[in-house]
């Protein structure tokens, strides 16, 4: 089965239009999602009320996500606790122009699930040294959230069996051989997202060296 999540070029023009709509004087832009605003408040102000809002949004989803792989309710809540505490403690590593909050939380959750199985834990790439002067502006954050939004609506429009393949892949239930034979590399798909990210990363790497 080959699944494609390609984003239509027509969709893409909409976020170019959006950038014009971002007010110049009032950062943060109202177009930025509440989750990202909460996460930034946690990162920059150590805001516990914002963290409580993040909990309300993510904890039940995380629990559902973890239980889908067959983990029982009690243990799933223990993992949710570890993940949410890591969100609080490692908030300084959150970069809204590189990852939407759910992507960042997803990665923490998968790391935690793997750490519980293996004593070595998962090998992680070197962190990029962020240059504080390249702090993203609101339009970059909005653009990235738009990409994630397009991907989400593409996912909901898939036939149920196709959607299941993608979900299984990201739940960590498919081997790389299965991904390569069943997904038909659908994720070469988030092509516009990749291009966006590339520009910014190239810029950062130039600053690093």
């Amino acid at each position: 089965m080959h699944v494609s999540l390609d984003i239509e070029p027509a969709d893409r023009s909409s976020f170019l239009g959006l950038q014009k709509d971002v007010p110049k004087v009032t950062p943060p832009s109202p177009k930025i999602s509440p989750q990202t605003l909460w996460m930034l408040a946690v990162r920059d102000q150590r805001d516990k009320a914002a963290f409580a809002s993040l909990f309300d949004h993510f904890a039940p989803r995380l629990k559902g996500f973890i239980m889908r792989s067959g983990t029982g309710s009690g243990q799933a809540e223990e993992i949710v606790q570890d993940v949410m505490l890591t969100v609080w403690r490692k908030a300084s590593q959150f970069d809204p122009a590189r990852a939407q909050v759910s992507a960042w939380v997803y990665q923490i959750a998968r790391n935690r699930q793997i750490d519980m199985i293996r004593k070595e834990g998962r090998p992680l790439p070197d962190e990029l040294n962020e240059n504080p002067e390249t702090e993203p502006d609101a339009s970059q954050i909005v653009a990235l959230e738009q990409e994630a939004g397009h991907l989400k609506s593409a996912l909901t429009k898939l036939a149920p069996d196709q959607r299941e393949v993608i979900e299984k892949a990201y739940l960590g239930e498919l081997t790389h051989q299965e991904i390569s034979s069943q997904m038909g590399l659908p994720l070469g798909t988030i092509k516009s997202r990749i291009r966006l990210g590339l520009q910014r990363l190239r810029h950062e790497l130039k600053d690093m060296r």
Partner: peptide, 21 residues
């Protein structure tokens, strides 16, 4: 790194679409 982050983004979308418990 960028492709890896794109996969993380897709994983985030799956997490976000998961039914809450």
């Amino acid at each position: 790194r960028v492709s890896f982050e794109a996969h993380q983004a897709a994983g985030g979308v799956v997490l976000d679409s998961t039914e809450a418990v």
